[in-house]
Amino acid sequence: MLHWIAEQKYTIGIVLGVVFGMLARLSMLRTDYRQYPTYPHGKIIHISLGFIAAGLGAVAVPSLLDKNYTAVTFLTVAAQQFRDVRNMERQTLSKIDSMELVPRGATYIEGIAMVFEGRNYMVIFTAFVTALFSIVFAWYWGIIAGILAILLTNHFKSGKSICHIADVKTAQVKMDGPNLFVDDIYIMNVGLDDTREIIRKRGIGLIVTPKNKNCRVTIANIGQRQALLHDLSTIMGVYRDEGEPSLLPLAKLDMGDGRLAVFLLPQELDAEKARKVLLQSPVLESAVRMPSEADVQKAGKEGA
C-alpha cells in the first residue's frame, strides 16, 4: 500500500492538496451569531467554491513541476473567479441590508465580502503548499505542511476587537427637554413625549473611550459605528419597528476628545452585557487609520 502511494506522487499530492484545502475552508467557515453565510445554502455555495479553490491550488504544483508554465495563467482565472465571489457577497448583503431594522452599513459589508475573497486565496495557498510538499518530498511531509498551513490561515482569520483599541463603560441616558444625552454627549432631539418615555424606560448608554490617537480615528469612522450598532442590535435585540423613526439606536462622537457615545434600545435591559458585546465587536479593517505612522509626526510613534 505504502509502496503504491509512493509511486502515485502526483495523484496523492493533488488529493492531499484538495483535502487540506477543504479542511482549511471548513475551519474558516463559521456561522456564528451573525448567521452569515446563511445555513444551509449559503454554506453550500462557499464549500463548493472552497473545493474549486483547493483544486486549483493543488493542480498548480504538478503543472509547474512538469515545466508546463503556461498552466499557471490558470490562476488568473481563479483570481477573477474569487473577485466575483466578493462581488456576489457584496451585492447580496447590500440588498439584504435595506431590509434590516438596524443596517450593517457599507463598510461592514465590504469587510465581510473582502473576507470571503481572502479566505479563498488562503485555501489556494494551503492546497498549494500541501501538494508541493507531498510531491517534492513525501506524502507525510505534505500532511505536516498542510496542518501548518491551516494553522497559519487560522492565524490570519481573526481580526481585532474593540477591546484592543478602546475602553467601554456604561453610561446614563438622560433627557433634557427634547434633548437626549448619554452622559454629557448629545445624541438627538426627541419631539414626542411618548417616545421620550420609552427612551427613559428602555434606553441604555455606553461610552467608548479610544486608547490612542489611531484608535480615535477608527472609532470615529461612520461605518465602524454602524457596525457596532448592528452587532449590538443583533445580540441584544432591538426595540424598534418600521414606522417608528424616532426609536433609533445611534452612536455620536464627542468631537472634543474623541469619545463615542452609543445609545441603544435593546430587548434585554442589561447594560453590563451590552458592554461585553461591544468589547467583542470586530474592528473593521477598512476603518483603521494610522495617523501616527505619518512622517510629519515629531514625538515618536504613538500606540504602536
Binding site: P178, G191, P245, S246
Partner: peptide, 28 residues
C-alpha cells in the same frame, strides 16, 4: 403632541421639538 405623534407614524418621519412651540417632522 397628539398631532405630531400621528404624523410621525403616518409619514415615517421623526418628530423634533424646536422648543419654541413648533415641532417639525423630518425624514432622515
Amino acid at each position: 403632541q397628539k398631532v405630531a405623534f400621528k404624523l410621525e407614524k403616518i409619514l415615517d418621519a421623526s418628530a423634533h421639538d424646536l422648543q419654541n412651540g413648533v415641532m417639525i417632522l423630518v425624514d432622515h
